[in-house]
Amino acid sequence: MIATKITKKTKVTKVFGSNTKAFRSMFFVCFVVTFVFFVVVSAQPTPRRIISLVPALTEMLFAIGAGPQVVAVSTYDVEPPAVRSLPTVGALLDPDTEKIISLRPDLVLTYGSQTDLQAQLTAAKIPFFDYRHGGLDHIMVTMRALGARTGHVDQAEKAAQSLQSAIDAVRHRVAGRPKPRTLLVFGREPGSLRNIYASGGRGFLHDMLVAAGGADVLDDINQESAQISTEVVLARAPDVILEFNSSNRLNDADLKKVVDPWLKLSSVPAVKNKRVIVLLGSGLTVPGPRVAEGIEKMARALHP
């Protein structure tokens, strides 16, 4: 747009030659057109009917005071409790476009990979917010961006700052303590050590571990999620194995069932020193406002 205007201006100069008055007035018109264009683009109306397809973003909306504007969420959404009574419109892989459009949203929060949905929304002239998971800092960035987009700039700023300071408080507390070499596991075949998925040296889970005062044993793997073999666990010999379990509560017998398969690897310091720690709760893997609680849990496990 700007580029075409500049060429226009050059042409104008050629045509009018030294007629500076005409040139000035043309320049003024161009300036006004450009200005009006940007004002129109940037002044989107504050959305009143938001649909969120990303649980982390839903939690952020409620944290920044945009909760009342939310009219529907994804099928994965469970937090905060207020969303449980809202209509659901599918999720990451199966968004129900018809239902989304029928709810007449004026903003849809989508995940970056939902390109088909985004194209359909564009065709239906429904604005959308594009998001992808990033590192820990990205959570605060996203909160502020959502605040700006939904008309809650101040509350978003406050929420982002308080989240940042909660994270910093944990960082501060564990600073200077020895960092246990930690394997952060977030998935495997139940009852066995097959198909272990662990955090590599990138992404918010890795950042959470580092903030909680741990050193990631898979630091050198430049991936958010790494599938590793038992050989790698034995070879890397972590001091602590932190394992996320999505259950909210486990009795002792069930907890023992979860931990038992690890006992086979008795040469691993984490196993030898009984530092295979299961952290409960589905919120641990959501990069939203509850992330500070997750870091706190991890810090307590790593530095009892």
Binding site: Y76, G187, N195, S229
Partner: peptide
């Protein structure tokens, strides 16, 4: 797989690719 929750679907897909890291003799 379509009806499954995201992490379960991922685990299911992974199983379909085959894997021999049985980590023990029982199986």
């Amino acid at each position: 797989q379509y009806l499954a929750d995201f992490t379960e679907a991922l685990r299911a897909i992974r199983w379909m690719m085959g894997g021999l890291d049985v980590a023990g003799y029982a199986p």
